[in-house]
Simulated scan of single mutants.
Amino acid sequence: MIDITKDIQPLTTFRNNSVKMMQRLKKTKRPIILTVNGKAQAIVQDAAAYQRLLDLAASADVNEGIRQGLEDMREGRTRPADEVFEEMRRKYAIPR
C-alpha cells in the first residue's frame, strides 16, 4: 500500500537525499513515486520488489507460462510424468 504522505516525493528531494531514500526503500519495500512539477514522472522500487512483480506478471500471463514451459523442455529441466508419479507413490506410500 502506498502512503501518499511519504511515498510521493519530488525528484529533487530524492536526488538530495538518495542514500536516505534508498534505505527507506529497503526497509519499507514500498515504491517511491517521483514527481516533476507536481506530476508523477517515475517510480523507484527495490530490486526484490520489482522481481516479485515480474514473477507475478509472468504467472498471470498464460503465454508467458507456456513460453517458460517450452524453455524448460529445451533446457532439459523436465521429467516424464510417470517418473514423478512413481516417486510420489513411494514417498507418500500411495498404493497403485
Score class of each variant (00 low, 15 high):
51 Q>G: 01
70 L>W: 04
47 A>S: 13
60 A>P: 01
57 A>F: 03
46 D>A: 10
18 S>N: 13
81 A>E: 07
62 V>P: 04
80 P>E: 08
69 G>T: 07
77 R>N: 14
92 Y>V: 01
88 M>R: 11
81 A>T: 09
85 F>R: 14
47 A>I: 13
76 G>Y: 09
40 A>C: 02
72 D>L: 09
29 K>H: 15
30 R>S: 15
53 L>V: 01
41 Q>M: 12
3 D>K: 14
90 R>P: 00
68 Q>Y: 05
73 M>P: 00
62 V>D: 05
58 A>Y: 04
87 E>H: 03
1 M>R: 07
32 I>M: 14
56 L>N: 07
31 P>V: 06
25 L>E: 01
18 S>I: 07
82 D>Q: 11
76 G>S: 07
68 Q>G: 05
85 F>L: 15
42 A>I: 01
56 L>H: 03
4 I>Y: 11
93 A>R: 09
62 V>R: 12
52 R>W: 01
40 A>R: 05
24 R>I: 03
88 M>E: 00
27 K>Y: 13
20 K>H: 08
8 I>L: 13
87 E>L: 04
21 M>D: 01
80 P>H: 08
24 R>G: 09
23 Q>N: 15
65 G>I: 01
26 K>V: 07
95 P>D: 08
58 A>N: 09
7 D>R: 08
80 P>T: 01
87 E>I: 00
4 I>E: 11
40 A>H: 02
22 M>A: 12
73 M>G: 05
77 R>L: 14
54 L>I: 04
9 Q>T: 06
86 E>F: 03
25 L>C: 06
6 K>Q: 15
9 Q>V: 14
